[in-house]
Computed example of a mutant assay.
Amino acid sequence: MKFFKASLLLLSAAMFTVDLKAQDFEKADLSFLDGQTKFNIEYNYDNMMVADAKEETYKKEKIAKFNEKQPGKGERWAEKWINARALTYEPMFEELISKYVFKANGGVIAKNQDGAKYTVYVKTVNTDPGWNAVVMKRNPKCVFEISIVEIATGTVKAKGELKANGVLMGGSDWDFDPTNSIKECYAKAGKEVGKKIAKAVK
């Protein structure tokens, strides 16, 4: 009987973990954030997929492709691919998320903020830059895992998946720069997370 009860507890815990990871962030309960005005924010790109490929595989293929046409262009592309995170995507996400939280109660979401009780973790699970083959196009899209973590204990208080689509910008597939297109995914994600947190902190 004890073994049966223990098995049920383990099964219940496993089911809860799966639900926590699989749920839509929009359905996450953020009521514990009531009254909070300071938040840290951090980003994670570990093990990110690019469409259906591992990021490292995608980068190697792109570098080789660009270098075939113009030596050194592949390395320049790779540098821009990484730098766009801190220079473009993250500032855009923070601009939108902060806009809604500030309107709600004057709250601030920023990196390394003293006095914050919670950190908003933004993990990019998948980035699909889209493509433009002239006769056919595919818009970019990103999949994020958003977590709210209590800093003092390291406890994940809420977690959910968020998907955001961008708008394809740029020329043909050869000279297509996905930075601005992907930026729109981060803008939409920041907006959605900001609206969700704003409702909870009022």
Rank of each mutant, 00 (worst) to 15 (best):
L11S: 13
E90L: 01
A158N: 07
N132H: 04
I109G: 08
K117P: 06
K157T: 10
N126L: 09
S172Q: 09
L30W: 10
K141T: 08
A133K: 14
I41E: 13
N139H: 12
I197A: 12
A110R: 04
K191Q: 15
Y118H: 11
A51K: 11
G35I: 10
D34K: 15
Y58H: 05
F176A: 06
L87W: 02
D114K: 15
N67F: 04
G154A: 11
T57Q: 03
P71F: 09
K157M: 14
I109H: 05
Q36M: 11
T153Y: 13
K27A: 12
A187Y: 12
R76A: 14
N139S: 08
Q36K: 15
R76H: 04
Q23S: 07
I82M: 10
E184Q: 14
Y100P: 01
T155W: 05
G194F: 01
F25L: 06
D175G: 12
W131E: 13
T179W: 00
K191W: 04
L33G: 04
D19V: 03
M136P: 02
E90I: 01
A86M: 03
E95K: 14
T57C: 03
K196M: 06
L20H: 02
G107Y: 07
T17S: 09
A198H: 04
F102G: 00
A200G: 10
A22L: 12
K111E: 15
K62N: 15
A22V: 07
I197M: 15
K5I: 05
W174D: 15
E150P: 04
I151G: 07
G170N: 01
Y58N: 06
P71H: 11
D19S: 14
Y43D: 04
V122I: 08
R138A: 14
N139D: 14
K80D: 09
A86P: 00
T124Q: 06
L168P: 02
G160H: 11
D52F: 06
N83M: 00
D52A: 08
K191T: 14
S172C: 03
S98R: 14
T179E: 07
